[in-house]
């Protein structure tokens, strides 16, 4: 995979300082705390985890809405983690983001045509006539009608809005798109349509996705590889089918236990792990392994030091259970 690598995230940290006033005790949210992974050209990397584990923060740091606290984001061989906004012009052309909330991600005062045209205006691409042409093509690709161009976002359903959002990201022919739970706000029947659309676009253009979701069974279908995130860290990472069938990390097992299994034989043979307790606060992280407070296999050792992400077969797992 390393020969056609597009993006490499290396020990990325994103901390938020939420100290309420100058005199209060320092409070730091470690939303993303040392995450590393790679995404190849034309590949989809699925990122799953509970609510609040830092998936969105990671996605937003990659598209540089947030500034990383430390670490590298190497895109096409260039580290963009610490570049100034004004030096990111070409990166901003190649990397786009599809947002979670289709109702908030479109400017309500702009028509669909203006929305899709905006990225081309910003980057001075094409002549005005070509832009209109391109808008029509994009509308067709995402399955909207040509006369929708003059309408406002509030006239569309959630699924249609998400299509508009996708058309907007495609306007710049990006190489990489971060999809932050692009279907979680949508009706189940619409979810599949949007996923299919994203897959079709990938087949046609060879774009890579970072696909964020909290439901592992959804990510499995679209992703080539999956990373499981817990409290700002990747705890397991591997080929999607493999990881789904044979989860190693207790947290991944727990996530998969919550997925209903259609086949009763398989269901019986699987030991269910029910997650107990609340997600600890990312301000006061547990010592050692972050998952130990909820882990049924936790030993004393887990509280002493943090298990490193180690290779087990084709998989990366961070758990002492799998130490050689």
């Amino acid at each position: 995979m390393s020969e056609n690598k597009l993006l490499a995230v290396n020990q990325l940290q994103v901390y938020f300082d939420i100290t309420p006033s100058m005199f209060a005790k320092k409070a730091i949210v470690k939303a993303v705390d040392g995450v590393s992974f790679e995404i190849g050209k034309g590949e989809t990397f699925g990122l799953v985890g509970e609510s609040g584990c830092g998936k969105t923060t990671l996605g937003k740091a990659i598209v540089r809405i947030y500034n990383p606290t430390s670490g590298n984001i190497i895109f096409d061989g260039v580290d963009i983690a610490n570049k100034k906004n004004k030096d990111l012009k070409s990166y901003r052309k190649q990397v786009q983001m599809v947002f979670q909330d289709p109702y908030a991600s479109l400017n309500p005062r702009m028509t669909v045509g203006e929305i899709i045209k905006e990225p081309m205006e910003i980057h001075n691409l094409y002549t005005p006539a070509e832009r209109n042409q391109k808008v029509q093509e994009l509308l067709e690709i995402v399955g909207l009608k040509p006369d929708h161009i003059r309408r406002y976002p509030n006239e569309f359903s959630g699924g249609q809005r998400q299509r508009i959002g996708i058309a907007r990201t495609l306007a710049l022919d990006p190489d990489f798109v971060v999809c932050d739970e692009p279907v979680s706000a949508l009706d189940v029947s619409i979810q599949a349509q949007i996923i299919n659309l994203l897959e079709k676009i990938q087949r046609d253009t060879g774009v890579s996705y970072l696909f964020i979701a909290h439901d592992i069974s959804m990510v499995k279908h679209i992703s080539h590889r999956i990373g499981v995130m817990y409290l700002g860290k990747l705890v397991e990472c591997g080929e999607s089918e493999d990881l789904y069938r044979n989860p190693l990390h207790p947290y991944t097992k727990a996530l998969l236990s919550s997925v209903p299994i259609p086949d009763p034989d398989i269901a019986k043979s699987k030991k269910r792990i029910i997650l107990e307790g609340e997600l600890p606060s990312p301000i006061n992280l547990p010592s050692g392994c972050r998952f130990r407070t909820r882990c049924p296999y936790a030993t004393e050792r887990c509280g002493e030091s943090e298990p490193p992400l180690t290779q087990v077969g084709t998989r990366d797992v961070s758990c002492f259970l799998y130490e050689k």
């Binding site: 598209v63 012009k89 947002f99 908030a104 991600s105 400017n107 702009m110 980057h123 907007r168």
Partner: peptide, 28 residues
Amino acid sequence: QQEFSLAAQVMGASNTRILFKHLIVNSI
């Protein structure tokens, strides 16, 4: 903080553009 203004940032819009075309217009 709304996603449409983040989207504009991601696509590389200048600050002036975000301020006037996205934020002020929506406060009209």
